[in-house]
């Protein structure tokens, strides 16, 4: 029951990404290309997603617990640090080069396009490299 629910939620997310145009690098890059072939669609994706999530979370997080789990697992940190800002800045550079973000690329795998597979394989390699780098930086016996 729980897994079927998770599957269907993934499907709704993937369908939303597909319909919205977020699976299309040309469209994503054009949002940022105000000086060139500008396409403002991405603002509508972010706007639609944010309004629904903002309102929905207000109701959901008022409840004592989720329906199929014991507790809500919501990040609690509020401090700003270098990995957050530096990492996000680096992410933007990669997103600006490729036009795929993780949330756009994972559903796009379903189109069977080889470019998506190449991007996701590189993305996975990048995550593995960064995880190794982070535990090296944190020192032995410490998980960052």
């Amino acid at each position: 029951m729980r897994l079927l629910t998770v599957y269907l939620i993934g499907l709704v997310f993937g369908l939303g990404i597909s319909i919205s145009g977020m699976a299309n690098p040309a469209k994503v890059l054009n949002f940022f290309d105000v000086a060139g072939t500008w396409d403002p669609s991405l603002a509508f994706v972010m706007g639609g997603a944010l309004v629904v999530t903002f309102i929905g979370y207000r109701f959901v997080l008022k409840r004592p617990a989720p329906i199929m789990a014991k507790v809500f697992q919501v990040p609690t940190r509020r401090d700003l640090d270098l990995p957050l800002i530096g990492g996000s800045a680096v992410f933007g550079v990669g997103w600006g080069i490729a036009g795929f973000c993780p949330g756009g690329a994972l559903p796009a795998l379903g189109t069977g396009r080889i470019e998506v597979v190449i991007f996701v394989a590189s993305l996975v390699a990048g995550i593995i490299v960064a995880k190794g780098l982070r535990s090296t930086l944190a020192g032995p016996g410490q998980e960052a």
């Binding site: 729980r2 919205s20 629904v52 929905g56 959901v60 989720p66 919501v74």
Partner: peptide, 25 residues
């Protein structure tokens, strides 16, 4: 420029986020 599809797709992304929080937290 696809404002309607993008808004609708975005709303589905939001719906998925809300449902995931409501069910498995």
């Amino acid at each position: 420029f696809t404002p309607l599809q993008s808004l609708g797709g975005g709303a589905l992304i939001g719906l998925a986020a809300v449902l995931l929080m409501a069910t498995v937290g």
